[in-house]
Amino acid sequence: MTTAPLLYVCVRPQQGAAAAEYESFRTAMKLDESAVGHLDLVREPLTDDILERYSGFLVGGSPFNLADPESTKTDVQRRVEAGLERIASHVAAGSSPGSEGPAAMFTCYGIGVVTRMLGGEVSRAYPEDTGPVGIELTADGRTDPLFGGLAARFTALTAHKEGTASAPPGATLLAVNEGCPVQAYVVGDRLYATQFHPEPTTKAFTERMAVYRDDGYFESDHYEVVAGRVLAASVTEPARLLQAFARRFGPAAA
């Protein structure tokens, strides 16, 4: 365990949703604000010293889609993707047994960035509706230092328009489900990526849904029905995953 803090990396243009996501990560890990920094990659540059100052990086979701044609992406989205690739590459370079490099947890939109960086394919072929889904650990997942402490089958929250058919080169598949076959993987021993959202409570997720109500993740006039399904779900295991990440890679103060 290190004394350096973790860093939440915001890739959401909507500042209210980003602030809430930061709080969701921090509270899920049971860390105070001194243990989790904040970088708004939409509005701030990623500098070399940032890569060296933190023990780990937490990348949240975004309304951006990696699989969209490059010609349709804004300069902001391209800059965000380039910054995330720098973080993933930096972590992957030091992600080997015995390494003391930083760790990372890339989630939702972030898993696509890591997948592409590793030579995998991200497409619109594996979307999942907004709400709770079943997740199953693979044999490797059941023995992984982080995932191995979870139930072999659990419920998590998803809302995404893209995914991938198989883990990219160099990655070990940790979790799957029928609708989206790659739910989590690890590269080396410290670069983790999940398709599902590990951080929000069901209430926080419905509040995020309200922000993106008209963004095509669900029929806007079905909000109450979808929100009711979310609030009725039990999503205990994803927070336990983040707590395991914080214990393994977070600051000693945790």
Rank of each mutant, 00 (worst) to 15 (best):
G216W: 10
R26A: 02
S234R: 15
V9Y: 05
A184T: 11
R240S: 12
E85K: 14
V113K: 01
A159D: 03
E178D: 15
G131A: 11
R43V: 02
I87P: 12
A232P: 04
G120E: 01
E21A: 11
R213D: 12
A193G: 09
R53L: 04
A204K: 10
L191W: 09
Y185E: 00
A125Q: 14
F64G: 00
R79D: 12
Y126T: 00
R247K: 14
G98F: 02
G101N: 09
T158S: 13
H197D: 08
F245K: 02
A184K: 01
N65M: 11
E128A: 13
V187D: 00
F57S: 06
R124C: 06
R79A: 14
A88V: 05
A156Q: 05
G61P: 03
G149I: 07
S99W: 05
P238C: 10
E207Q: 15
T143Q: 12
V76R: 06
A184D: 01
L241T: 10
T27N: 12
R12Y: 02
R240D: 06
V211R: 02
E70L: 15
P168K: 05
S220Q: 11
R153P: 01
I87G: 10
S123F: 04
E23Y: 07
R229H: 13
E70C: 00
V225M: 13
A35Q: 15
T206H: 10
S166W: 09
G101V: 03
T47S: 13
F106T: 05
V176H: 11
Q183Y: 11
E21N: 04
P145K: 05
V11W: 04
R213L: 09
A67W: 08
Y22K: 04
V9R: 01
T3H: 12
R53K: 15
A253S: 15
